Computed example of a mutant assay.
Amino acid sequence: MSTAELHTLTGAYALHALPEGEQLAFERHLGACEACAQEVRELSATAARLGLAVSATAPPALRERVLREITTVRQEPPPHGRSTRATASPGRAGRWPVYALAACLAVSAALGGVAVQQYQAVQDARQETRQAQRHDAQVSRVLAAPDARTATAAMEGGAQGTVVVSRSVNRAVFAASGLRRPSDGQVYQLWFDDGGTMRSAGLVDTPDTDGTVLMDGPVDRASGMGITLEPAGGSPRPTTPPLGLMGFPAA
């Protein structure tokens, strides 16, 4: 199998739809091709998110039809210095580049009992994946900064809050444990303390309220932070007494 053909197998590999021989060849190729490795990571995350988000019982004949049709479908190679024009392989029909990802996801639907209803769902899931990756990268950058400093304090109701601040990165990360789930119509909101003036730093909207949050906006001259319980959507200024206050540690 040529290198050009290997570049087209990312979607099928991400969904475990390759024959053993092609799978082994592609895995060797992945070690030397970062573009394909990145595309496999994105497609795998996309398929997993779609499987959780969109569920429906697949028609009995869908699995057989999809497995038959994917032998004639190949996606275009990644556009990293390679031609994006489709070429036919011996014994295979021409590729359908526009529908390649949709066809691969249909394999996942057939095997797992999940049917993908709209192409837009693919775009939304991939965007969500990229946003999550950017968030994780920014959090890691703060936590790994040489000047990162940590402060921890008890909060109302037995919860505990921890903040990590990096002045060089100019960002802060907040983590909470033991926060009770807010009532309907309420949300936890974070604040920077700019010399006694509270500046919104985003909402704690993780499903279980026990998570790591990259605080919105730069730290700048803030000397500390607080957390309050606000109406859904947040408030421009705190409307309730703080559940917790923490001063930022000195650099």
Rank of each mutant, 00 (worst) to 15 (best):
R167Y: 04
A56N: 04
A153R: 01
A48E: 07
G185T: 04
A88Y: 04
Q120I: 11
E64C: 03
P182H: 08
V54R: 02
S235T: 08
G211K: 03
L229H: 01
C33E: 07
Q117C: 09
R74E: 11
A251G: 10
P97W: 10
D220V: 15
A176N: 04
A115Y: 02
S223I: 14
A88Q: 13
L6W: 05
E230H: 09
S200A: 14
V187H: 05
G161Q: 02
E230I: 04
D220G: 12
D205F: 01
E230P: 07
S2M: 05
H16S: 08
P236E: 13
A137F: 03
D136M: 13
Q186W: 10
G196T: 11
G91M: 09
T46Y: 00
E128M: 03
L243N: 04
V107K: 00
G11I: 10
A251F: 11
R149D: 02
S2Y: 06
R92A: 13
G211P: 02
Q138C: 11
G94L: 15
V187Y: 07
A25K: 01
G224E: 12
S2I: 03
S235H: 03
S140F: 06
Q131I: 14
T3I: 12
S140Q: 14
T152W: 01
L43R: 08
A110C: 01
L43A: 06
S55A: 12
A86V: 11
L179I: 02
I70Y: 03
N170D: 15
D136P: 01
L143S: 05
P231A: 13
T212Y: 05
A115D: 06
S183G: 07
R85H: 13
H7L: 08
R237P: 04
R130I: 10
A86T: 09
P242Q: 01
A175K: 09
V173H: 03
P236S: 15
V54Q: 01
A109R: 01
A12S: 12
D124F: 10
G91P: 05
Y13A: 06
A37N: 11
L101A: 15
R126C: 03
A102E: 13
L179S: 00
A14D: 00
L203C: 07
A132S: 13
V204E: 06
V173Q: 04
L105V: 08
T71S: 06
M215E: 04
A12Q: 11
V116K: 00
R95H: 09
Y188H: 05
G195T: 09
P207L: 10
I70G: 00
Q118M: 12
P242E: 05
P19Q: 09
A86C: 12
L67I: 09
Q75R: 13
Q131D: 14
T72Y: 11
H29A: 06
V66T: 06
Y119K: 11
A154T: 04
R92S: 14
T228H: 05
D147Y: 08
R28L: 09
P218F: 08
A153K: 02
V164T: 14
A176F: 08
P241N: 07
G81H: 07
A53Q: 14
T10A: 15
A153Q: 01
G11L: 11
V54P: 00
T206D: 12
D220N: 15
A153W: 01
G224A: 13
G157W: 03
G21F: 01
R167S: 09
V213K: 03
A25S: 08
D210E: 15
P241F: 05
R82E: 11
A56H: 05
R181S: 05
R65E: 13
D193H: 04
P60I: 02
L24F: 07
T3G: 11
G112R: 15
